[in-house]
Amino acid sequence: MNCYCGTNKPYESCCEIFHLNGGQTETAEQLMRSRYSAFVLANGDYLMQTHHESTRPTKEKEAIVNWAKSVQWIKLEILETTKDTVEFNAHFSKKGKADCIHENSKFIKENTLWYYLGYAENTY
């Protein structure tokens, strides 16, 4: 089975590596893909760890995990990537109704680690 993030690699050779190494990705897109897989797996610890401390929604962790578990994730579609932004569509279904999150995510690299900073545009 291919990784949840949509690459042609198995999860074990793709996002699991980042889930186990604390998010040590080489690019913002790799971090975005690994965060999508973390949503699929409802891995709240990873989502918090890879969210920049200045915008990290620590108090919302449980709600985020509960929401991630309440939907069926369909696919991740990367639309455009720059050095520190990733525009994507995350397709999911809730109670049989298809939906999509469109986001232009901002990332920041501190020392050697990339972090999710927030979004420039978000459409639900």
Rank of each mutant, 00 (worst) to 15 (best):
N2A: 11
C15Q: 07
A42L: 08
C5M: 05
K106C: 07
A42P: 03
L41Y: 03
T25H: 06
G44P: 03
N111G: 09
K75V: 03
G22A: 10
Y11E: 02
A42T: 04
K9C: 04
N122C: 13
S54E: 12
D99N: 15
V71M: 06
R56L: 04
V71G: 05
T25V: 07
K95A: 14
K109R: 15
L76P: 08
F39E: 00
Y115A: 06
W73V: 08
Y124I: 14
H19F: 03
N122M: 13
T55E: 02
E12R: 15
K106Q: 12
L31R: 10
K109D: 02
V71P: 04
A28I: 01
C3S: 03
C100N: 12
H52P: 07
N89R: 12
H91D: 12
N21T: 10
L41G: 01
A28H: 02
F107G: 09
A90I: 02
N66W: 00
N43C: 07
D45V: 14
M32L: 09
Y116V: 00
S34R: 01
G6Y: 03
E87A: 15
T112A: 15
E53Q: 10
T81N: 03
G96T: 07
A68R: 01
Y119L: 03
M48I: 11
S54Q: 11
T81E: 04
K97W: 00
N89Y: 13
L117C: 03
F92V: 08
Y124W: 11
K106W: 01
A28S: 11
N66R: 06
T55P: 07
K94G: 00
T112K: 12
S93T: 15
E26R: 09
T123H: 13
I108S: 08
G6M: 05
G96M: 04
K94R: 14
W73R: 11
L79A: 10
E12S: 15
P57F: 14
T81V: 15
Y115C: 06
F18E: 07
A68F: 02
S70K: 09
K9Q: 12
T58D: 15
I17L: 10
S37V: 06
Y36C: 04
Y116G: 01
G6I: 09
P10H: 08
E87G: 03
S105A: 10
N2Q: 13
N21E: 09
A68Q: 02
T82I: 05
M48T: 06
W73S: 11
H102L: 10
M1T: 14
S34L: 01
H51G: 01
E103F: 04
L113S: 14
Y124F: 14
F39T: 03
K61L: 13
L20C: 06
I101S: 03
G23R: 11
P10E: 10
V86G: 01
T25K: 04
G6R: 01
T25A: 09
T85L: 10
E53Y: 11
N43L: 12
L41H: 07
T50V: 09
K106A: 06
K94T: 04
A63M: 06
H51K: 04
